[in-house]
């Protein structure tokens, strides 16, 4: 056996020794070995380097909403394959696979919740479903969530994680940018805050529509945020991208974010912002808690 193959083998054994057995895992960023339960307690943020692990839409709900207060709506809305799209696989098959993987019917959950006893509409995109891509269902669910917020006089918080528009629905997907913008333009005529939280990654048409339309725009540390993906830019300009390019810190520096908020402080920040911006009518919101479906 040639020597170089041998060395490769040794390397892989070493790596294996470091891998988690379920209780422990290694930080993707700094390599620190972390006790999984510790990590979960800390909003999946590495204590040592503040690396933000990806978390699911459910975990965001648990983190932000008052315990047990979240009532999801439109959960069984599902894509209907308007183009009969097929590449190497049929689109409905891809959807089915994503549904299995992420445990949801499309890339966003929308619902009503309490945040420190105040009613909010909360939408959370989930990157685990089809890369958080936006098609007809995501567009419609955002529109309906916006309307619920308007009808109930609630703030609207939208947590974004998305690779952009879903090409399997062709121009229907692109038009979701227009559709959500129309509804948000109506929402902007009210005095209800629309707050977006941009998590890793938020790119493409998602950034170029509702994500960037927040009255206040928050990002998680280190999140990749941009219009074109780094690979496309690299291909276009034919050179490597500068370090930190399109990261949350870069966007903050260039004036496109209101703030970067560590996930452990996200709930508190959202709550304070809403206190500042929203005139809640307490008697009314009590009544409406019971009417949530």
């Amino acid at each position: 056996m040639p020597w170089f193959q041998k060395s490769k083998k040794i390397q892989s054994t070493q790596k294996k020794a470091e891998l988690p057995d379920g209780l422990w895992l290694k930080c993707d960023n700094c390599g620190e070995i972390i006790f999984r339960r510790e990590l979960q307690k800390n909003a999946s943020v590495c204590q040592k380097c503040r690396f933000h692990f990806r978390i699911s839409s459910r975990e965001y709900i648990e983190m932000i909403a008052d315990e047990g207060s979240y009532r999801e709506f439109n959960a069984d809305m599902k894509s209907s394959d308007p183009l009969k799209f097929k590449d190497t696989k049929r689109y409905p098959d891809r959807i089915q696979k994503s549904t299995k993987k992420a445990g949801m019917n499309d890339a966003i959950r929308t619902g009503i919740a309490l945040l420190n006893d105040r009613k909010i509409v909360l939408g959370i995109m989930d990157f685990n479903f089809f890369g958080g891509s936006v098609g007809s269902v995501v567009g419609e669910k955002i529109v309906q969530a916006t309307r619920r917020a308007k009808e109930g006089n609630y703030p609207f918080i939208l947590i974004c994680a998305s690779g952009g528009m879903r090409m399997q629905e062709g121009l229907f997907s692109l038009m979701q940018m227009a559709k959500t913008s129309c509804e948000l333009a109506e929402f902007a005529q009210t005095r209800l805050p629309f707050i977006t939280v941009l998590t890793h990654p938020t790119t493409g048409g998602t950034t170029a529509s509702f994500a960037m339309l927040g009255d206040v725009i928050i990002a998680e540390p280190g999140a990749l945020i941009g219009f074109a993906g780094p690979r496309v830019i690299k291909q276009t300009i034919g050179q490597d991208l500068p370090p930190g390019f399109q990261r949350a810190e870069f966007l903050l520096q260039h004036g496109f974010l209101d703030m970067i908020v560590d996930r452990t402080r996200l709930r508190g920040t959202l709550s304070t912002l809403i206190m500042h911006l929203h005139d809640a009518d307490d008697s009314e919101s009590e009544e409406q808690v019971s009417t949530v479906d």
Binding site: S79, D81, P82, S136, E140, Q176, K179
Partner: peptide, 10 residues
């Protein structure tokens, strides 16, 4: 634009 989109119930 509100009319643009196709979906069904799971």
């Amino acid at each position: 634009y509100y009319k643009m989109g196709k979906w069904e119930q799971a």
